[in-house]
Amino acid sequence: MKMIEQFRNFRWIALLFMAIAVVSCSDDDEAPEEEDELEVITDVTLIFTNTSDASDVVRASAEDPDGLGAQSLVVLDAITLSLDTEYTLTFDILNALDEDDIEDIGEEIEDEDDEHQFFFSFTEDAFADPSGDGNIDTASDPINYGDEDDNGNPLGLSTTWTTGSDALAGGNFTVRLKHQPDIKTSTTGAEDGETDFNLSFVLNIQ
């Protein structure tokens, strides 16, 4: 009699086991939801616009079509500017991993202007203004920033460049975008924070 009771007891547990096993077998098969990839930059275009002739535009691009994949970065163009001309430099910064949903990272940077700054370096005295070789090596070196963040520090989505009367062939122009969350000040430089991109172009002035 006692044995029978215990057997009932056991049967009840076995039943419970099977019930839970069945419940947990019901798998879902959903894929992760689509994400807007905000970290990756695949395409950067430098746009030099002649300040006295808006139709005179020089573009130079670099692209890394697979982002974090193993495919290499390609610098597509050289920068070829005219002598004795003032240009405004602006950028197209995109994430085009998903061709159907291209992200404008430039807007992101503008939204978080107090965390970002562009730095530049170029062949010594390539420009009449700014002079020198840029502010990647020394942050206080002259660059003509045309914008500033909420704290009054330079940003660099817009900068001004004036070429002189000396021609240049096969020079260098490097632009580096730094991400400096919580650390950006008026004195932070190109070594502080994290690099969002760092691109070197051939610079010709003729």
Binding site: D29, E30, E34, E35, E37, D66, G69, D101
Partner: peptide
């Protein structure tokens, strides 16, 4: 049973 996304957000299974 595996479901993931490629970087261009295409689904792989």
């Amino acid at each position: 049973d595996v479901r993931g996304r490629e970087t261009n957000q295409d689904i792989f299974r």
